[in-house]
Design a protein around this nucleic acid. Structure first.
Lengths: 260, 260
DNA sequence: GCAAGGCATGAATCTACAT
DNA sequence: GATGTAGATTCATGCCTTG
């Protein structure tokens, strides 16, 4: 039925179709951003090193329409399986978050906040033709407009914030670099978009309780699973790419071994 | 032809239809967040408290569609009249900005940044069920993907930012309160969504030059006109509500009188 | 051992110009 | 227009080497 505390290898839309209605407490989704980078262009730093872009096949879509169809499909399933007391978090940046947000509203998901993750140590804008991209947006929503009884750990958040109510602009975290960043056998980043543990931790501390069931339909490097495990939540991760399934499995096992 | 340095009283979509193609250097738009339909009108008691209407009758999906049609109409005109070297700024918050952003992308407008205005002195969230809303989002875009020669005053921005490249999260300004806030004869705020001068000033300093022509299709209290005048830009303002036309006209005249 | 400096690098819708 | 090549451009952070 529900494969708790496991990674499911497969297309998330297909996998989600087998999940029962109203069964998930919290969904964290970091879907493909549809970056649309120019082809055959390299970005070289002054010191001669090359910026490795997100160029994976999973981020490529033929058109806005195709991206929208994909987005609506997985969001529809997520909405269906989300409990009325649950919440969904969807993360993105200006390439995709506006499309995603409109589709969420059209499905009837009801927004609670759009939270700004202000990045520390983000990459500068090299050519000086725009502002530095220094944030990502997290849309936080309930299943529909009538859902009022969702989890929001206000007192905990206030304690974490020096006694003051936390703002949608108070999420300031480092990007994932250094020892936390998973590397492959060549020392290159093993996943192009690994998210920081602290960011996901903030999501789970905000909107879930111990024993809740957390779903990540785009598990990637497995950050959500590790954080859920650490915080005593059950979790389900879905990942399409076999190599990332293996990466995340090893990561989770390493985490458990070091913990015990 | 182009009513420079004037306020045009009328529906912005109708007014914009008479403007020639490729004629505006910078558009700043702070569109309405809610539908202005009669069935959605809010009732305000004499003591200022709000009568909450029964909303169950009207179809929520229909209202989104109505808002989307309106949004697409004015954005289409704005895109048409924007110079290939110009840029458009559209401001909003989570109620509307995702819908607006998707429609902009669908029209072919090409995003440069989504800038976060981090508010100072924003209202707290009283019931402790969400994060405090502490920001608004400004989408900054060019007419289409191929437009590269837009104005971005990088050197000025760096000087304003201590020699460092400015980030999309560096826009921290107070909300419009105190003497800057226009009041009516009863001392009540004369416009519900008056924006701070410094915010609009940052927009114009970022993406326009002296002598450029700036358009605000939702002029409201006239902040854009005042800032444009102060910075030596020409401007056009469109405003549908007669009382706000009068308010802005007086404000601009007061500004000119005090300046001279 | 400690301080200073070199070096790597991060979800990025690069720009200008020639062909 | 589309494509290819050369050019100009950037910040914070942490690890590691050097002195």
């Amino acid at each position: 039925m529900l494969p708790k505390n496991e990674i499911v290898h497969g297309d998330c839309i297909e996998v989600l179709k087998d999940f029962p209605d109203n069964s998930i407490d919290l969904i964290f989704a970091d879907p493909p951003y549809n970056l649309q980078l120019p082809k055959n262009r390299k970005l070289i730093r002054e010191n001669g090193t090359e910026v490795i872009p997100v160029n994976d096949e999973w981020d490529k879509f033929e058109s806005y329409e195709e991206y929208d169809r994909f987005t609506e499909s997985w969001l529809k399933e997520c909405q269906r399986i989300l409990k009325p007391t649950g919440t969904i978090w969807v993360m993105g940046m200006y390439h995709n978050i506006f499309r995603v947000g409109k589709i969420m509203q059209d499905l009837g998901l009801w927004f609670l906040n759009d939270v700004i993750w202000v990045k520390i140590d983000a990459m500068p804008n090299f050519n000086g033709r725009r502002f530095t991209n220094n944030h990502e947006t997290l849309i936080w929503a309930v299943k529909n407009k009538n859902c009022k009884n969702y989890t929001f750990n206000n007192e905990l958040l206030k304690r974490m914030n020096g006694g003051k109510q936390m703002k949608d602009t108070d999420w300031v975290f480092k990007i994932c670099r250094g020892p936390e960043r998973l590397k492959d056998e060549n020392g290159i980043k093993a996943h192009p978009t690994q998210k920081p543990l602290k960011l996901i931790q903030q999501v789970l501390l905000t909107a879930s309780k111990k024993g809740d069931l957390v779903l990540d339909p785009f598990l990637g490097s497995g950050t959500t699973a590790v954080v859920a495990k650490a915080l005593g939540r059950d979790w389900i991760g879905i990942e399409k790419e076999k190599k990332y399934v293996a990466l995340a499995k090893k990561r989770i096992q390493d985490f458990i071994n070091n913990k015990l």
